[in-house]
Simulated scan of single mutants.
Amino acid sequence: MSVSATASVSSIVWDMGDGTTVTCTGKGTPYADHYGKQDSPTCGHRYEKMSTDQPDGAYQVTATSHWVVEWAGGGQSGTIEFDLTTDALPIRIGEAQVLT
């Protein structure tokens, strides 16, 4: 008897640590240098500095990925869905301004 299974990420929900959650369909797009300051073509987030007095900060970011596994074997088939959540990861956001 053989069994086959295919797992794929259907969505990822990011808790950005600043009170914002971002839901991305699929796995998203890795950053590439040619994007520069453009928004992500599939999913992204910008941290907004609330005031000039607000210090640069470290945000605790978590991601929850929703997986779908489709399987078949032994004359049967089915779908299994489950979520995986990361531990909180600190992301430090800073801004540099240059005066000439």
Results as ranks from 00 to 15, higher is better:
residue 25 T to C: 02
residue 25 T to S: 15
residue 26 G to I: 04
residue 26 G to N: 08
residue 26 G to R: 01
residue 27 K to M: 14
residue 27 K to Q: 15
residue 27 K to G: 14
residue 28 G to F: 06
residue 29 T to R: 05
residue 29 T to S: 07
residue 29 T to A: 07
residue 31 Y to K: 04
residue 31 Y to S: 04
residue 31 Y to A: 08
residue 32 A to G: 08
residue 34 H to S: 13
residue 35 Y to E: 09
residue 35 Y to Q: 11
residue 35 Y to L: 15
residue 36 G to D: 12
residue 36 G to Q: 11
residue 37 K to L: 15
residue 38 Q to D: 15
residue 38 Q to M: 12
residue 39 D to H: 08
residue 40 S to P: 06
residue 40 S to H: 08
residue 42 T to G: 00
residue 42 T to V: 12
residue 43 C to K: 05
residue 45 H to N: 00
residue 45 H to G: 01
residue 46 R to E: 13
residue 47 Y to K: 05
residue 47 Y to W: 15
residue 49 K to Q: 14
residue 49 K to F: 09
residue 49 K to S: 03
residue 49 K to V: 05
residue 50 M to A: 13
residue 50 M to H: 07
residue 50 M to E: 11
residue 52 T to Q: 10
residue 52 T to Y: 04
residue 52 T to P: 06
residue 54 Q to L: 10
residue 54 Q to M: 14
residue 54 Q to F: 09
residue 55 P to I: 01
residue 56 D to G: 13
residue 57 G to E: 09
residue 58 A to F: 02
residue 58 A to N: 13
residue 58 A to W: 04
residue 60 Q to Y: 06
residue 60 Q to S: 15
residue 61 V to K: 08
residue 61 V to I: 12
residue 62 T to D: 04
residue 63 A to D: 13
residue 63 A to T: 10
residue 64 T to F: 01
residue 64 T to W: 06
residue 65 S to G: 10
residue 65 S to R: 07
residue 65 S to W: 08
residue 66 H to N: 14
residue 66 H to E: 07
residue 66 H to L: 03
residue 66 H to K: 14
residue 68 V to H: 02
residue 68 V to Q: 03
residue 68 V to K: 15
residue 68 V to L: 09
residue 69 V to Y: 00
residue 70 E to M: 10
residue 70 E to Y: 00
residue 70 E to C: 02
residue 70 E to T: 15
residue 70 E to D: 14
residue 72 A to S: 13
residue 72 A to L: 00
residue 73 G to W: 08
residue 73 G to P: 11
residue 74 G to R: 05
residue 75 G to F: 05
residue 75 G to D: 05
residue 76 Q to K: 14
residue 77 S to N: 14
residue 78 G to L: 07
residue 78 G to T: 04
residue 79 T to D: 07
residue 79 T to E: 12
residue 80 I to K: 14
residue 80 I to A: 12
residue 80 I to D: 10
residue 81 E to L: 06
residue 81 E to R: 15
residue 82 F to L: 14
residue 83 D to F: 08
residue 84 L to Q: 13
residue 84 L to C: 02
residue 84 L to Y: 02
residue 84 L to V: 11
residue 85 T to E: 03
residue 85 T to R: 09
residue 85 T to H: 02
residue 85 T to Q: 09
residue 86 T to E: 07
residue 86 T to H: 06
residue 87 D to N: 11
residue 87 D to Q: 12
residue 88 A to N: 02
residue 89 L to N: 09
residue 89 L to H: 08
residue 90 P to E: 12
residue 90 P to Q: 06
residue 90 P to L: 05
residue 90 P to Y: 05
residue 91 I to T: 03
residue 91 I to K: 03
residue 91 I to G: 00
residue 91 I to V: 14
residue 92 R to Q: 10
residue 93 I to L: 13
residue 93 I to P: 01
residue 94 G to T: 14
residue 94 G to Y: 11
residue 95 E to H: 07
residue 95 E to Y: 02
residue 96 A to H: 13
residue 96 A to R: 11
